[in-house]
Simulated assay, not measured.
Amino acid sequence: MSETVEVAADNSAPPQAPRRLVVLISGSGTNLQALIDAQNTAALPNAQIVLVVSNRKAAYGLTRAASANPPIPTAYLGLQPYLKANPGKTRADYDIEVARLVVRAKPDLVVCAGWMHIVSGGFLDVLKGTVVLEGEDVLGREIPVINIHPALPGQFDGAHAIERGFEAFQKGEVEKLGVMVHRVIAEVDRGEPLIVREVEVRKGEELDEYTRRLHEVEWEIIVQATRKVLDEVKPSYSSSDFQ
């Protein structure tokens, strides 16, 4: 008779801390809500939003974060109030202060989810680790930044892309429209596309109808792209770092 030998499972490995997300917003936060709903589900496993930053005080996304279960920490830093409170400071200084808020949260990834402020080279240099802010830790690795943009690659960079694209389609200037999530670089909306999705648009329909369909696609792909990048990034922190 053969003897059965039971081997105890090795539970000595420390638990992996949840992947940490910082989300930047400016408005109602529907894309943020998609991330809140997806965290720690099959769509976005072992992930936690650790900070939501807004450049607009009245952004409803801040309320969404505070109302989450558990509540998500938030921060507000507006450009004009910052410049008024700090005479002699510049927009570049403001971007550095936003970067300081971000790196203090020790994220694995930063998601721009309706962040209506151009991400500067100075901000990106801090997150790349090529610039170390006074009083802050040296980064163990680059923190990637991604952004959702309601246009196809190379179409309608910058603000009001939905309206500009819709008008161009109705005039027959373009044949298709869509939305993408891309890596953030200094050139506005020109980073490497991660997920690109066409969105149906119909001749003669109202802008609101197209916008509704586009947002539904946004809520899907912002989660998909977040998971895609997190899967590429080696965790830089263990659970003991946050105890």
Rank of each mutant, 00 (worst) to 15 (best):
Y94S: 04
Y94M: 02
I96T: 12
I96V: 14
I96R: 12
V98R: 09
V98W: 14
V98Q: 10
A99D: 06
R100E: 10
R100S: 13
L101Y: 15
L101G: 15
V102C: 12
V103E: 11
R104M: 14
A105I: 03
K106V: 06
K106C: 10
K106Q: 12
P107I: 00
D108K: 05
L109K: 00
L109T: 07
V110T: 10
V110P: 09
V110Y: 11
V111M: 09
V111A: 10
A113K: 05
A113N: 11
A113M: 03
G114H: 01
W115T: 02
W115M: 02
W115V: 01
M116D: 12
M116T: 06
H117V: 06
H117Q: 14
H117W: 11
H117F: 13
S120R: 00
S120W: 05
S120Q: 05
S120A: 00
G121V: 02
G121W: 06
G122Y: 04
G122F: 04
G122N: 14
G122R: 03
G122K: 04
F123V: 04
F123N: 08
L124D: 05
D125S: 13
V126W: 07
L127P: 08
L127H: 06
K128F: 01
K128A: 11
T130H: 07
V131S: 13
V131R: 15
V131K: 15
V131Y: 14
E134Q: 14
E136W: 06
D137R: 12
D137L: 11
V138K: 15
L139P: 13
L139Y: 12
L139H: 14
G140I: 02
R141L: 04
R141H: 08
P144N: 05
V145Q: 08
I146Q: 08
I146D: 11
I146N: 12
N147C: 09
I148N: 08
I148H: 12
H149T: 04
A151D: 02
A151Q: 02
P153Y: 01
P153F: 05
P153D: 00
F156L: 01
D157K: 09
G158P: 07
G158M: 03
H160G: 10
H160C: 05
H160F: 10
A161G: 12
A161F: 07
A161L: 03
I162Q: 11
E163N: 01
R164H: 14
F166I: 00
E167I: 02
